[in-house]
Amino acid sequence: MGHGPSTEWKTEKSGAFKSKLGLILFAVFTPIYLIFVIMSVVSPTFMASDIGPLNLSIVYGFGLIILAVILAVIYNHICSNKEKGDDACEETEEGVE
């Protein structure tokens, strides 16, 4: 599959920060996923409870997918701001051509 060579990205000052942020968001998502799995096994009756025309399983399942997208957006937003901040520092320290 010709994906081409990986590109060398600019120096990554914020690399460690981004890794940590990733782990934090992972720590947010994982328990919510695990609770879904465990509740489905432990209390199927509760997961079948009505929520209007839907039920808890549908709302939770759709919610997990939507939450994943939202967390990805948050991750991107914070990372982009951080990178902008880093670039600004570089500019004041070293000046721009």
Partner: peptide, 25 residues
Amino acid sequence: GFLYSIGFLAGWMVALFVVAEPLKR
């Protein structure tokens, strides 16, 4: 069947948040 949809997308959270950035570094 929908469980697979949920699981496949949840897997992205591991890829994006845990593996991608450190591997790149």
